[in-house]
Design a protein around this nucleic acid. Sequence first.
DNA 1: ACCACCGAGTAACGCGCGTTAGTAACGCGG
DNA 2: CCGCGTTACTAACGCGCGTTACTCGGTGGT
Lengths: 338, 338
Amino acid sequence: MAIKRTRNVTMTDVASHSGVSRTTVSFVLSNRENANIPDSTRRRVLEAVDALGYRPNAGAQALAAQKSDWYGLITEIVTAPFAVDIIKGVQDKAWDERKFVLIASSEGDQAMETAAIEKLLEQRVEGLIYATTWHRAVTLPPAALEVPTVLINCFDPEDRFPCVVPDEEIGGYRATKRLLDAGHSRIAFINLDPAMPAAIGRRAGYDRAHAEAGVTVDPDLVVYGHALADGGYDAAAALLDSASPPTAFFCGNDRMAMGAYDAVKEHGLRIPQDIAMVGFDNQEIISQFLRPRLTTVALPFEQMGAVGVTMLADLIAGAPLRTNRMLIDCPLLERASV
Amino acid sequence: MAIKRTRNVTMTDVASHSGVSRTTVSFVLSNRENANIPDSTRRRVLEAVDALGYRPNAGAQALAAQKSDWYGLITEIVTAPFAVDIIKGVQDKAWDERKFVLIASSEGDQAMETAAIEKLLEQRVEGLIYATTWHRAVTLPPAALEVPTVLINCFDPEDRFPCVVPDEEIGGYRATKRLLDAGHSRIAFINLDPAMPAAIGRRAGYDRAHAEAGVTVDPDLVVYGHALADGGYDAAAALLDSASPPTAFFCGNDRMAMGAYDAVKEHGLRIPQDIAMVGFDNQEIISQFLRPRLTTVALPFEQMGAVGVTMLADLIAGAPLRTNRMLIDCPLLERASV
DNA sequence: ACCACCGAGTAACGCGCGTTAGTAACGCGG
DNA sequence: CCGCGTTACTAACGCGCGTTACTCGGTGGT
């Protein structure tokens, strides 16, 4: 465990080592124009930087320059899978803008969340991104008002913060249209809790697709399931046992589709020959590995993260936002279950 | 979008607002002992803090105090699911020690990884935690040597860094013993790539359990599968079609178990009545929702994260480490597939 | 010979804060 | 009245760096 504890090398060290003033070192390192640094000097400085292993002190830089180059990201990291894609989208995009992302997890706990925001503000982040794992309304701690803030996958009921949310309606529309196009007319919709924005939007898309196709929606085919595999299983089994069963299922999420698969198989039916199935979320570990692989609608979290960063940058720059509520398209991913 | 842009309030502002010196404010806020601050003064200061919305500047604090209270965490965030648990374990434990965690993602890319470490060092993190999503040897950029560093779920071939890794052997042992105890004697082992530390350790545990039970291992029952659902399906199907098929499967991960489930069901066999199944990883989204729910061995990532933080704290404090390679137990989670 | 100008470089201030070394006022025993 | 210990505070330095406002030694033009 040999730890090379380099004494903290500062610009002053670099300066004396290369025989110039600290100011000159600063000019060289910040590539300042109009500074008239001849190449010979520049080289001497850079060599000293290398030789001494100089590393700028970000805190001191931020203090002197009065800016931090950091964005803060608050997210529910426990509820796992989706948060990761948002983080990735945010981080990559931020990197493009030479910004870094300070991640704090909220764990759903309100007190901890407030503490996290405080900590980020103490780091003097230039802006805040608040992301949730499921589409919903949120109420942020008041501290968030102190700094430019963008919401991802959630929205402020009072509209004080701009947000990026998935276009649930188009997702529901795409899924349903795909099934209608495949010739199905009895399409069951195992939706999420009807109070959720996701459920409302997707239902609207389901209805619109039917309307455009001139097919009447049978209200008995639209049910609400517990949002896990069991919920999908139960709902699908009940529908298959009904007097006039559906020939296709549109499931509110991939987990329910996973349960529905089991119900279909246990009824001795084959996917997609006898029953077609479309999911939602594109939770890869499920949709990629179900047999047959599941056709589903993607929630483009990574893209949402990237768009969020762009909006935040505009907000910080004081640029006008095109919209306070950015809708992100949800594409259909064709696999093998239709 | 009403953004309350509070001009940056400093200690000096608080001082003048409450009629004391900046030093006194500092003493009050840091709860300094032996400072003899009467309650009346303390209250005046705290009221001013509140009234002005003062918020300490972490960068300035770090600069003055010559310490940062931050740990750096580098992790492969793309390969998703596991990274999240490590992050959670690290963050919670760090919070207990009043430390904060700066997360950077490496994305597997060597250049980006080096850049990430540099950035963390520029923030003057007190230590570094490097975590991977699968157990393996890693080679860190040399910059990691400049600061106390702990590895999680990976190890340094040259042993320059202490590490926390899962005890694969005990995991393999537990899984196998459970099946032996259930009366099985022909237990197939669909292992991961035999070059992986995980595969080696689990195989050793599998062998030890057999040896202790006095059961001879049939080498034909130990196969290596592509680590995805298809690999599990193919391997399980082949074994079930063989002359003397197994009565139980121990799968190298839950994804393969997911595929094996399909193979078993397609052979008209029932789990667990006809075939018992044990997975590995406890990838919740799979093991919780397969029907029947999958008995599996957990990789305790959260715990590994917490232990890593403890080791790092010791390392920073210069305390002697009990071991340079901490093994974490992998418990068996009983569900319904045995 | 004088001035204007340019290239090359530096002294010095301030960012917000922790901390040390003080000071000023007061009470109390002798 | 002196000396001394408390109590309650503050002046001032330094952390590492960005930045502004300079200095100083040449060159070229008139």
